[in-house]
């Protein structure tokens, strides 16, 4: 059940986090402590229990298909770390 450093490395990539070797080691230990604790739930037999998704019922909450004013172009890009040509700019993808 316990996770290893290479599992943490995989989780980090999936989470888009870069970890140093020391961090990997530290997280391996600390994640295992938390996971051990979380694992205590498996003591409960829950075969007949429905998973709770919404604590309060939430059904058919809709909006009408009416256009609303969004952000103006300047506002949309206001927080962009890098903007060009009216768009958000990112470094090469592959």
């Amino acid at each position: 059940m316990r996770i290893k450093a290479e599992d943490v490395e995989k989780l980090a990539l999936m989470s888009r986090l870069e970890l140093t070797e020391e961090e990997k080691a530290a997280y391996t230990e600390s994640l295992n402590a938390s996971l051990d604790y979380m694992h205590s739930l498996t003591k409960l037999v829950t075969d007949t229990v429905e998973p709770a998704v919404h604590v309060l019922p939430m059904v058919n909450v809709f909006r009408e298909d009416r256009v609303e004013i969004g952000l103006d172009h300047k506002q949309a890009l206001a927080n962009a770390p890098e903007a060009e040509a009216g768009s958000f700019k990112v470094p090469r993808i592959v």
Binding site: L11, H39, T42, L44, T46, P51, A52
Partner: peptide, 18 residues
Amino acid sequence: SSASYDEYYTQALKVRTL
């Protein structure tokens, strides 16, 4: 993640019901 989903996440949602 798919390998842990039922063991942890689904179980947690069930405990939420309880």
